[in-house]
Design a protein around this nucleic acid. Structure first.
Lengths: 261, 261
DNA sequence: TAGTGGTCTAGACCACCTA
DNA sequence: AGGTGGTCTAGACCACTAC
């Protein structure tokens, strides 16, 4: 602990002791006295330094963890969380010129950035459209859709889960029902089927992940997720696909261009 | 507690007791046995029901709170968190037709949705451009910018903070330096000054809020924020403004249209 | 005043990691 | 084996809210 030298507690202030301790450590991280990957003093050392009970120290560490600033590793220590390289999603990523290259957007981009893309957990089923999907596809309740769910990884690290829905009427019996949807992905298949794509609408929300999302994306505590729902529209105005994705928020930066006119 | 009837603990499973308890309550919320605004059983009731110590119950409740599912109110109880109405930001919100109506985007939209918009904490200063801003505005270090910071509220509830940066060379001596930037906001002023706007680029990230953001936006525990940085480009390609905003993620849904061509 | 959550103590035993 | 964090107990006193 000699190297860190955290301040003393302020006994006068009415701010709770565990909050003061969290403040000290947070400040040290902010000033980069503690940097990404650095190990914090152990709980025992912090108890010693501040002269408080263990639960008080653990409360302080809990605060930092839920802020996404630190991660605890059982048996090793508590560390300043390091952020993975950010993947930028630009708004032209579904432009036809990319589709024509014969690779799905994710593969093309990841390789372009020097990463090793992979896709797993591919599951294809025909189901009744969930309400949110039916609304976006302008289907009635009970209408069925082909659902393609999969998980995207970069260098073996999961970053995104996605479920695509295409009206069964369109996709049944086509390659969209196959695990490998072929060169250019399902958007290329849709165009081959005569549904020339016109535009997409992406709707973005952010929230803390559900339990299954924490598992599927191997999320650290204190990391929110983006939920991005993309609807693809054909030139005649008909929505032909909905893609519901959940992304680790610290793996992505989303970028969009908006007209000013 | 009679009305809730949570399951018993599974003594065989190796899942921690406080996690099992959190699971039970989370399930009850998921099934809508507990609905938005409902009060959870008190800590004392839960101790009684499960026959465990208070810290075990508090650990379970802490889990739910950091997932954004519940909020504790001192002296009152723990409640299922209710989500405020979501404000949808569409990608045409800076279209000229809105600007020409003489209202800034925020005011026009909020009134359109039946809310009462307000803006406070307006502070205008001339400063050296922060690095991230200088890069986006293609300024050198040391170049100064006019910074306009303010906070947006809907029905008195803060939802967003924003700081705009305009090169001082452009804004100095203009109404952009005034607290009330006039009809149509600063984008209208920039156009009057001869910088006809062509497009915007918005970059979106999500993370847990800093302490000052929790205060400024009155954020509940477990609520992440969007950070949205918008750069405005004039028709000659010159970036003329950067706006750095932080938004409560549960007050917003962002929506963008992307071309497919 | 009674009930609620907020903070803190002082222990205990366990599981995991490193050496 | 020794150090680390993970879980849990059984108390205590306090601050806030409702009645």
């Amino acid at each position: 602990m000699a190297e860190l030298s955290l301040p003393e507690l302020d006994p006068a202030g009415d701010r709770a002791v565990f909050r003061q301790i969290a403040d000290h450590i947070r400040d040290a991280i902010g000033r980069e006295t503690l940097r990404e990957g650095d190990k914090l003093p152990s709980e025992a050392q912090l108890m010693q330094h501040y002269g408080v009970a263990r639960m008080t120290i653990r409360n302080a560490l809990q605060v930092l963890q839920s802020e996404g600033l630190t991660v605890a590793e059982h048996g090793r220590g508590v560390f300043v969380r390091s952020r993975p390289p950010v993947r930028r999603l630009a708004s032209d990523r579904f432009a036809r010129r990319h589709r024509d290259q014969g690779k799905a957007a994710f593969i093309a981009e990841t390789e372009g950035a020097g990463g090793k893309p992979s896709v797993d957990s591919i599951r294809i089923t025909e189901v009744q459209a969930p309400v949110e999907v039916a609304e976006r596809l302008r289907l009635g309740e009970g209408d069925s859709v082909i659902s393609r769910s999969r998980r995207y990884l970069i260098n073996g690290q999961p970053v995104e889960t996605a479920v695509s829905y295409v009206p069964a009427e369109i996709a049944r019996g086509t390659r969209i029902e196959q695990p490998d949807s072929g060169p250019g992905g399902i958007y290329a298949r849709l165009e081959e089927l005569g549904y020339q794509l016109d535009h997409f609408v992406e709707e973005i929300q952010s929230r803390m992940p559900f339990r299954d999302e924490v598992r599927a994306l191997k999320l650290a505590p204190g990391v929110p997720v983006f939920r991005l729902v993309r609807t693809a529209y054909a030139v005649d105005g008909r929505p032909v696909e909905v893609c519901d994705t959940v992304m680790s928020s610290d793996a992505y930066l989303l970028s969009y261009e908006l007209p000013a006119r």
